[in-house]
Design a binder for these strands. Structure first.
Lengths: 230, 230
DNA sequence: GCAAAAGTGTTCCAATTACACCCATGC
DNA sequence: GCATGGGTGTAATTGGAACACTTTTGC
């Protein structure tokens, strides 16, 4: 499950299935583990097949194993889902056994106008909740930003993933005050409009203590339709 | 991986392996998934084989999948580890293919005086960290307590799992002030010494908001030897 | 009375929140 | 000048940490 943020929206890479079952349906990209390969290595290999990205520039973590005997009509398939977070990418090339791959807003993929194959809707919801939770306790949000990036860009990542706006000044204090989160480059970026912003790179810290918690009071964005439930 | 708290110590159920490889070594109990069975169902079945407990009285959750091709010398075995938390139990009966099962303090199992089979030391460390983290954000600690229980008993669960003492008064305010954590029974328990304590049952709440965070300042207990690292 | 554990009250401090306000730039 | 987003200052509030203190029991 590969997440990115494009046009201030959280998006997920989906493929149009070229084989039965669920021919023509959208599905999360995936594949089979090979002999002599760990699950981490298999996930990384599949990731490279779908995107041009190598594993160093993005975040990859194991999510959950899905094991309902009926989840695949072809037979008994147990899937160990992985979650990858990466910066905005060019439109991807088609994978090995996929007719086409494309970025889709997570909101529309969950809303269910076009149902996902297998139990991938469940996996997607779990991945979304994991990503939202990770933003509270870790610094992975920076994995969504192509370096170098500004504090405002990082804040818009949080707003896209969480689905509500944050107070810009408090957010700035929090992330700049967290040791090892951001490393100033000394450079500045001159936007089309407004004051230029300082540029940063990802720092060595991976944990956010104290955490940056989602407030109970939410300010939904216009394009957000789904709720924050479990 | 079945955890319990006995004698104010976090303990884990280990079996002495009766077969090669690692014959005679201690190992986490486990088994193979059957056709037509989910991983959750398999974990519950294995749990019932090792203990007399049914799944309703304890907490069971998926932990992580372990997939190193070399982790089992017999061949390619991928293990999906589960974490179970339950109240103090009588000494367990031996499982199906285990010579003997016994409760062992997690501290001694990790210290490595007796090394665990396969990569079970890694799995145990991951499970310990998950349990410690769950106590911060959820109400699962109550799963360790036979009902009904007192606030002091619940606090000693936290102290055993986290490995340091908590302030009794602040702890009491926190747990009694969390809606749905504890349900007063109206009864009291008269200990051998000291003032009698009110008795509670587990409430419907499963999340602890705001969380009950482990302090950065720790007060190690005497029998604790291992650190809090990742 | 004394020890021990339960339970209450209070003060101090760290962190978040809400919001006012200033800054630097392009047009 | 003015709109726009970057960035600083500050008061109010929340919640945790520390610890003094009272209560209720068995001996």
């Amino acid at each position: 499950m590969i997440f990115t943020v494009r046009q201030d929206q959280l998006q997920v890479l989906l493929i149009d299935r070229g084989n039965e079952p669920y021919l023509g349906c959208a599905a999360l990209p995936g594949g089979f583990v090979r002999d002599g390969e760990t699950l981490d290595e298999a996930a990384l290999r599949e990731l490279r097949e779908e995107t041009a990205l190598d594993g160093r520039t993005l975040h990859l973590e194991q999510l959950h194993a899905y094991s309902d005997p009926e989840r695949d009509p072809r037979g008994r398939i147990i899937t160990v889902a992985y979650l990858a977070l990466g910066p905005n990418l060019p439109p991807p090339v088609a994978g090995t056994d996929a007719a086409a791959a494309h970025w889709t807003p997570v909101s529309s993929a969950i809303d269910g106008d076009m149902p996902l194959a297998f139990d991938h809707a469940t996996i997607l919801k779990d991945g979304l909740e994991r990503a939202r939770s990770q933003l509270e306790h870790t610094t992975v949000a920076a994995a969504f930003c192509p370096e170098p990036f500004t504090v405002g860009e990082l804040r818009r990542i949080y707003e896209a993933v969480w689905g509500f706006k944050l107070d810009a000044s408090n957010f700035r204090r929090k992330v700049t005050g967290t040791e090892g989160f951001l490393i100033p480059t000394g450079e500045r970026r001159f936007p089309e409009v407004g004051r230029p912003a300082a540029l940063y790179c990802r720092g060595p810290a991976s944990l956010l203590v104290p955490p940056l918690l989602r407030s109970s009071e939410v300010f939904p964005l216009s394009h957000e339709r789904f709720s924050i439930g479990t």
